[in-house]
Amino acid sequence: MTCFDVFNGDADGMCALRQLRLSEPREAIRITGLKREIALLERVDARSGDDVAALDISLDVNRAALLSLLQRGVRVQYFDHHGSGDIPSHPALQAHIDLAPAVCTGMIVDRYLGGRHRLWAIVAAFGDNFGRAARGLAASLALQPQQLAALQELGECLNYNAYGDIDSDPVLHPASLYTLLERYESPFQFMQAELVFGKIKQARRHDIELACQLQPHTVLPGGCVHVLPDAAWSRRVRGEFANTLANNDPQRAHAVLTPNVREGFTVSVRAPLTRRQGARQLCVQFETGGGRAAAAGITHLPRDRLPDFVKAFEQAFPQDAK
């Protein structure tokens, strides 16, 4: 029997898997990628009797590959909070799907494990910009304020490091970063021991400073659209900058676009934090769009469709939340 662990390369995906493997250790072939790489199950070469764990990747996007695995006699354990559509009913599928706006995959795994490795769930929640949920989890632990702040910074750094359009964009590719994370039972041990954490922190701070110096492309009643330059730093910071904008102006929506290799744009959208709705509905209007109600994106927006996106953004978020 061969085991596969398939997970998103952001904070939520990595921390969800870290919790699961601390409780249920096993040797597995790991499959991950940059945050935008969601269709990962199609990379799994599994046969009858094999086991697959899928974490933090949309079931809807991976539906065809999932059904193929099940038909081949592969057992699948699925944890996710993204768009799922109808969940297949199959004896070999164990699905833990929760689409609530303020629930991330790390929190779903935390629930499944009864909170046995909650520190990693807190990191996951902070990484997905669920600060209130992260602090709610932390209330059950005897953490000092500086410890909670450190977990928040780690979550934000892990999430930042997952962004980019090519493998060389991040400070360290998520696959390599997870091999470091899995050495440690506690996120505090990782932060203390691994020099790469400091490198990611420094790069994140630098990239945010550059992004904050730029003016928005379009300012609308219900939000702003930002177009960053064609550079590795802007591709890395796209999601982190969107979260920063959302946290600084929680009643408005925000979109951050970066040029991509297909001569269009990759897009990150954040709905207003005060209502966390509308991001997915906006993005799925475009061919490669998807995500969650609160945070979504478009893998490729053709350059000539930028005006269409701005118009759709204005319609999706027509005015400031009251």
Rank of each mutant, 00 (worst) to 15 (best):
Q213M: 12
Q213N: 11
L214A: 11
L214P: 09
L214Y: 09
L214S: 12
L214G: 05
Q215N: 15
Q215A: 15
P216W: 10
P216G: 14
P216H: 15
P216Y: 10
P216D: 13
P216T: 15
H217M: 14
T218H: 13
T218V: 14
T218R: 15
V219E: 15
V219M: 13
V219Y: 09
V219C: 14
P221Y: 14
P221I: 15
P221N: 12
G222W: 08
G222D: 06
G222L: 10
G222R: 07
G223H: 07
G223V: 08
C224T: 12
C224Y: 04
C224K: 14
V225H: 06
V225E: 06
H226R: 03
H226V: 03
H226E: 05
V227Q: 10
V227I: 14
L228E: 03
P229C: 10
P229T: 10
D230L: 08
A231R: 11
A231G: 14
A232Q: 03
A232Y: 00
W233V: 00
W233I: 01
W233F: 00
S234G: 07
S234I: 05
S234E: 02
R235F: 01
R235Q: 01
R235I: 02
R236I: 01
R236S: 02
V237A: 06
V237F: 01
V237D: 01
V237K: 01
R238D: 02
R238A: 02
G239M: 06
G239R: 07
G239F: 06
G239K: 03
E240I: 05
E240P: 08
E240G: 06
E240H: 09
E240K: 01
F241W: 12
F241I: 11
F241G: 07
A242R: 00
A242L: 01
A242C: 07
A242T: 04
N243F: 09
T244A: 12
T244I: 11
T244P: 05
T244R: 14
T244S: 13
T244H: 14
L245N: 10
L245K: 00
L245P: 06
L245F: 11
L245G: 08
A246M: 09
A246P: 05
N247E: 15
N247P: 04
N247F: 14
N248S: 15
D249L: 08
P250Y: 10
Q251L: 15
Q251V: 13
R252M: 10
A253K: 02
A253S: 10
A253C: 09
A253P: 05
A253R: 01
H254E: 06
H254F: 04
H254K: 04
H254G: 02
A255H: 04
V256C: 02
L257P: 00
L257E: 04
L257Q: 03
T258F: 04
T258C: 05
P259L: 03
P259W: 09
P259K: 02
P259G: 04
P259D: 05
N260W: 06
V261F: 11
R262A: 10
R262H: 11
R262P: 02
R262Y: 09
E263F: 13
E263W: 14
E263D: 15
E263Q: 15
E263R: 15
G264N: 13
G264V: 07
G264S: 12
